[in-house]
Design a protein around this nucleic acid. Structure first.
Lengths: 220, 220
DNA sequence: AATATTTTTTAGGTTTGTCTAAATTTTATA
DNA sequence: TATAAAATTTAGACAAACCTAAAAAATATT
């Protein structure tokens, strides 16, 4: 089955919101997609008739099993293109998302699978988000917030919570990146800021607020 | 300026037809785009108001200078993606065109220029058609039909005239490809069929009709 | 040159995805 | 629990890109 760009954007948005809040509603979806609530209702009806959505007027909605499957296909496309843009075309981290928004709607399955192979079957995109495989399986990674780490704890940056330009700016400036090795040297009680060592080289001081936005894989 | 997928497809189709016939008309464009003449008229008006087309009702139309510029941007995108698909993702020759039809509408200039760099600034796509550069310049290649070559003449396959599946089948079977070196061993007067050597290895007999569809660069 | 044929355009309709404004239903508050 | 507020849906409209059927213009034929 092939879906329109609009349909795909709705499915994807609903999927992402469902990971964050327990009940997605018309208002929330309207504000994420920057459309009016009436437009949402129209599309909900359409997705319902296509069996991508469980929806009862006034009673809320959520993706059906099929809707979920479709969402993961779209997310797979998006993240593989992001990986391609960053890894092969040397775009920076912050630039890839927007371009992938267009590329993700190119829906030829064979193309995406060959792209996956060409890239060496990557498991995570440049933001540290997992890339679903051909069957829609995603590799869950155990990660905790950097702010939760104790002194002497070590780990690897896996993901940044928000992708806003403001935080990107700061992180890039700190010479931190997805994959960077972090060691916590000291935690200051006064403001809970931390001194950390990045990749065994640079020592930096970061605020509690920043540490709250950085996920760390606590691996070995 | 950004144009819709439909607008881009019209511009591209008009451009290509203008290379082949001296006056493109509504009927011809309708049949190439598989739409009705009335739809063509609608779009012609729209492209006229956007100054991409010189158009007078009943008097015919042709791309304006700006329309031409836009066409070359679209063709650049299409052919770069074709090159990527064939070269990097290892798709065959015949498969790439259709996928590139979707990819060509992803219009981020920076993306296309970085793709160009990544691919090593290729001059010709997998069908042997020239890829316009950033300024819309295309490298013209001197080529003649294989059927026009005399005995002992040598050259390199640059392009196949028609891209139909029927001819693709035959050419692939002959182990001929864009770039193959050809030497004419003999031309039979009876049916004008030829015996040729491909890449200094295989010797094949090909019909006049096939030779009429293969372009050869007569280089050095 | 008059008529027939073909091409092109116009007029009016459809679908998709959006909108505004009004009506309805649910939820919150006094 | 009655009423106010917020969320949701319905009704009707609009632009883009297509369609069919009919009218108008250009071209070909006798």
């Amino acid at each position: 089955m092939k879906y329109s760009v609009s349909e795909e954007n709705y499915i994807k948005a609903i999927y992402h919101l469902q990971q964050e809040v327990d009940r997605v509603n018309t208002m929330l979806l309207a504000s994420t997609l920057e459309t009016k609530p009436a437009s949402i209702t129209d599309m909900l009806k359409k997705l319902k008739t296509k069996r991508l959505l469980d929806y009862k007027p006034y009673y809320g909605f959520k993706l059906s099993a099929e809707g979920n499957r479709v969402a993961l296909v779209i997310i797979r496309r998006h993240r593989l293109w992001e990986f391609f843009l960053a890894e092969k075309l040397k775009f920076s981290w912050e630039e890839v998302h927007e371009m992938a928004e267009d590329l993700e709607h190119v829906s030829n399955k064979k193309l995406i699978d060959k792209l996956d192979a060409f890239l060496g079957y990557p498991k995570f995109d440049p933001h540290g988000d997992p890339i679903p495989d051909q069957d829609g399986k995603i590799q869950k990674e155990e990660h905790v917030l950097l702010s939760e780490l104790k002194v002497k704890a070590q780990g690897r940056v896996t993901k940044i919570k928000s992708h806003s330009t403001k935080i990107m700016d700061l992180i890039a400036h700190q010479q931190m990146n997805i994959g960077s090795k972090i060691t916590v040297k000291k935690v200051f009680e006064f403001d809970e800021s931390m001194e950390i060592v990045i990749d065994g080289k640079t020592t930096k001081n970061i605020s509690k607020q920043l540490a709250n936005n950085i996920f760390i894989a606590n691996d070995k």
